[in-house]
Design a protein around this nucleic acid. Structure first.
Lengths: 222, 222, 222, 222
DNA sequence: GATGAATGAGAGTTCATTCAT
DNA sequence: CATGAATGAACTCTCATTCAT
């Protein structure tokens, strides 16, 4: 929804009859729609309208709702991974790098909640579409690579006493940042948990303390 | 289908409790359906068939799909909270109690994934139904109370040096247990993360280490 | 179209909520529609409207357009075969019996042109539906049996000198009666052939002469 | 697809006849399509693709689907009539000539079943398009003229004792050859009638016997 | 208390046709 | 001469909901 203005504006500027632009407009509109209301709640009509194009064109480009959804899911990963490239950790100390990573992840999730809703939607569908994305291993988080380097440096420096695998650490960080964003509505209602920026950042700080503390504990993964 | 036989049999011993049993059968079927395929993916026909009852009856009891969903959502909380009562922490040391709590939460989520899908569904709907549940504060986690006591004991014993609020700690624990269950399909496909019992328990152990470690750190929440 | 009045009237008399009658009304409307405009030209909306019922009910009873078409095709055979039972040949001499059979067939086709359009439609579809009718061998022409008896008597009486197989003779008769009815529009336009009742009956008389004459020729089928 | 290569190649040698060739390619593709699946089953997209040309061009040349169908129908007659010119009967005796005519007609229909499906399609449409073909009397069967001559010779020779009109005889022959080809799918399924070449030729021989026999009968058409 | 019969409104998808180059 | 891009209208089919008993 928030995104629609931009997409429409883009198309208006470019003018019609540009296949590439039309495809992109549909894809963005689809991502908006699927992430807003899930697969079954999504309406092809709305996607077409949002893109400022007709339904037949949409079907021409993407085949059917399912294929469009698959393309939108892939696009969600692509956009998220593109954002992750912005993060630079090399100049930071291992401890600061982990802290930056956690905070970045939280901000990333908080400002792009559509990514989380897409994941939830796809998991409700039992991953049936993600498994059909050909290059799904390439959409892995780029943070894993950066994290790997940070852990290495921390171990070499002697500041991290735990020999942890990057994926294990990433799972801790992602878990901690995912939950309060994914469940922001129910948490607010049931626990009165504040899901505003400040509150989420405070949670992220606690998460950082826990993760960094854990890395400093002596211990190995068997 | 499997359920319908039982439900019909139950109703067969006609008596005072007929209506009660029918209502319960519908509610359980609704919970199954909504948690399996989400709100928009759910089919009233399937729920009625699964309950072994007719659709008009369902509408008689619950009004419409939205109300039925609301009842199912409440039922999800009720059943989860009922399960949480089983956990006894009094006899354990504060450290062991936190460990037990984490493991319990993980197991709870892992063996009742429908609860997580219900939460995801409701958050996709922006919490519109949970906010309409009258007694929503009563469905708060009972673990919060138990946790509160554990933290108190840990502080008093001097084993926990951090004066943390129960909700903060609960958020850490829930976050750590929620993510790998909620995202089990995409994690498997994208990261090759194993979401079997052993792997989830290993993740829970790391979570425990991080949380307990964090509680032992000196620090206060401002 | 011609039939619709009756069907609607029937339903009106019987009143609604009679599953059997509703099914029959839909089936008759479907037969009318498919035979009027072919499979691809047929509209489910029109069938439902013609039957005085809603589309969902139609789908409830018959599944989809294809299944409905299959049922209508079967119904076409059933109705035609029912009409064929009216014909009594036992009291006639073999020669007169053949003449009666030809004239009956011509009249049958002429007054029920929907049967021919259904056959043409099904052959355009390469018989894909008739092959799926379970009891398709039972819908064979009842005339074949009657004809078999007539041929036997003619042979025994020494009036038919040819030992012809019933199916061979039936093929000749059906061929001769089918063509001018099936092609009545193009024949009129291209050859100026009159396809009125008198003209068709005259053609049938010529057909009778040819078939009877053939049966009287000495000859055997190898 | 198979055709497109050739068509494209043809059009490649750019010159005066380009338009002519394109038109012909479309027309042939249309004839293939309409005769395969009927008017309503036909797809303009498929016709254009089959012709190896774009849809706008098709619309440029033929106006709309209806006009294209009309042109294809006319083309069907033209092609069939062209084939009929191959038949030479002058050197044969009247009896042999009739036999040859029957066999030729059967073979013609058997090897060009698209003609029959076009006729069936047009009759389903109640001849609405054939009546709009301007020169529809010119597309009359050329066999009628040949037949007329044969009958004359047979009468003069005293071998045919019946004074039959050419159209009457033609109707008998066409009827007998049309039916088993037109209904080959349903006949196979319902009667187990073999519609292979041998079987059809045997039917044609019986037809010949019947027609020749009829012509030899004394009798006049009133 | 319970249900078989029925439907209005809307879903995804297709198709003949036109626009703009 | 030719076409890639685009669409209004219509199609088959579905779904939450109600009627009549």
């Amino acid at each position: 929804m928030a995104r629609s203005g931009k997409a429409t504006a883009t198309r208006a500027r470019r003018g019609v009859r540009d296949a590439e632009a039309s495809r992109a407009a549909i894809l963005q509109a689809a991502l908006d729609e699927f992430s807003s209301v899930g697969y079954d709640g999504a309406r092809v009509d709305r996607i077409a309208a949002q893109a400022g194009l007709s339904k037949p064109l949409l079907y021409d480009y993407f085949g059917d709702k399912d294929e469009l959804y698959k393309a939108a899911l892939r696009e969600a990963y692509v956009q998220i991974r593109a954002g992750e490239e912005q993060l630079a950790l090399e100049a930071l100390s291992p401890e600061d790098a982990v802290a930056a990573l956690v905070m970045f992840t939280m901000t990333h999730f908080r400002t792009r909640p559509w990514f989380i809703t897409m994941l939830n939607t796809e998991n409700l569908r039992q991953g049936s579409s993600v498994s059909a994305i050909g290059d799904r291993r390439e959409i892995q988080s780029k943070l894993l690579v950066k994290l790997s380097d940070v852990l290495e440096r921390g171990w070499d420096d002697g500041v991290f006493l735990r020999r942890a695998k990057p994926l294990e650490v990433y799972m801790l960080i992602a878990s901690l940042c995912y939950f309060p964003v994914s469940n922001r509505f129910t948490l607010t209602e049931v626990f009165g948990f504040d899901t505003g920026e400040e509150s989420l950042n405070a949670h992220a700080r606690r998460a950082t303390e826990a993760v960094v503390g854990w890395l400093k504990q002596k211990g190995d993964t068997p």
